[in-house]
Design a protein around this nucleic acid. Structure first.
Lengths: 211, 211
DNA sequence: CCCTGCGTCAACCGATCGGTTGACGCAGGT
DNA sequence: ACCTGCGTCAACCGATCGGTTGACGCAGGG
């Protein structure tokens, strides 16, 4: 028994919460066929370690406190051929879309059962996709009725809006005319299904479209 | 060695994320002198199990998805003499204040080192308070300059505001005059340090004053 | 008993917003 | 070459907002 028959899947953890990381480490170490080869507390660290350790799977949280977020880290890691499995709390449309767009292999919620996590890690190691049921539903729903996506510019406007700025101030901040701001706002209202600025900010914060 | 010299501290976990719970379980079981006697996935469950199991410490997350939140659960558990140690992601003013007000014995962030968690659990078991450094800072700051607290009524107004309602609609919804709404809004602006409704919603969402 | 905080209401004003219509240039894709 | 999406701008209107001042009743604490 000096030979390992099935080599363990080498996993890199990325989560800014030390306690959660430690917990996952303890949890995964108890699972057969999975070996945690590294931990990262930030997106930058994850990118560096992914390159250095070349794990089979990176278990990635999206919310990473300061620095680049999980989506950006995924965007940098995925092209190197390392599979990224997103494990996060949020099941909002915007997060899922961005993560998939960034090249995530799978998307699991922390509310998922541990066995699901284990099998998702196995799946991800082979490049197969696993989605938590609620996430899958959202993806399906979006396929059916492609939900409006805010453009870059509109997000900028929204950002200023959330600062409580008036149209004139927004116009000055972005070097455009007040009329343009109003045009954008109108489209934003349409896409978000609201008709006031306060409502727009509210929805934006809920959908996590803003920081 | 049939006798246990120092009986283990009996801990009840409460977190709506199964993976996190499993992780914490694995982590705490590896710690000497700590024994996890139960797990709850909701506030209601935590209240019931706390009464039934009478643990030494309840490790409580604040965000619990559906049902009552961690603060409410704490409010119900604390009076029974069971110590509640809050372990959460958020270090916002409002959360800390509410948790302490509800009777939490300590307040730790998930970003804390596991050793801190262990010692905080020991401390909590004896009724001693442990605060994460950032949390302690916030508490101190608040002592120095008692930050404006929104009244019940103002929070109601704020809630309507976040729905994107106009003053007239808010007035109707709360059975008061439009003038009163404006008066409240003026005070809300003052307290939140903004001067527009969009700004107020933004700050409110950031401070987690609203759902 | 007085004072403070809270919630309520009124009337006024200028500034701003929300909605509309119509238009132009530019890029990317077919 | 065409079309679509995006970003830009203009002018207009009524409705709404933000700010102000002043006022009342009621509860709780000193």
């Amino acid at each position: 028994m000096t030979e390992i028959e099935t080599p363990s899947i080498r996993v890199l953890l990325c989560d800014d919460h030390v306690v959660v990381r430690a917990g996952l480490l303890a949890l995964l170490d108890s699972a057969p066929g999975i070996e945690v080869v590294g931990e990262a507390g930030s997106g930058e660290e994850a990118v560096a370690l992914a390159e250095k350790l070349r794990p089979d799977v990176v278990l990635m949280d999206l919310q990473l406190g300061a620095g680049i977020d999980g989506v950006e880290a995924t965007r940098q890691i995925a092209p190197t051929g390392v599979h990224v499995l997103v494990l996060t709390t949020y099941d909002t449309d915007a997060d899922i879309t961005r993560a998939i767009g960034a090249g995530a292999t799978g998307y699991l919620l922390k509310a998922e059962r541990p066995e699901e996590l284990f099998s998702a890690i196995h799946a991800a190691a082979q490049g197969r996709t696993t989605l938590s049921p609620p996430v899958a539903s959202i993806v399906m729903a979006r396929m059916r009725s492609p939900q409006p996506t805010l453009t870059e510019r509109e997000l900028e406007i929204l950002g200023q809006l959330a600062q409580g700025l008036g149209n004139r101030d927004i116009a000055r901040a972005l070097f455009i005319s007040e009329a343009t701001v109003k045009t954008h706002l109108g489209r934003i209202y349409d896409k978000l299904g609201v008709d006031t600025r306060a409502g727009a900010v509210s929805v934006a914060k809920e959908q996590r479209l803003l920081g």
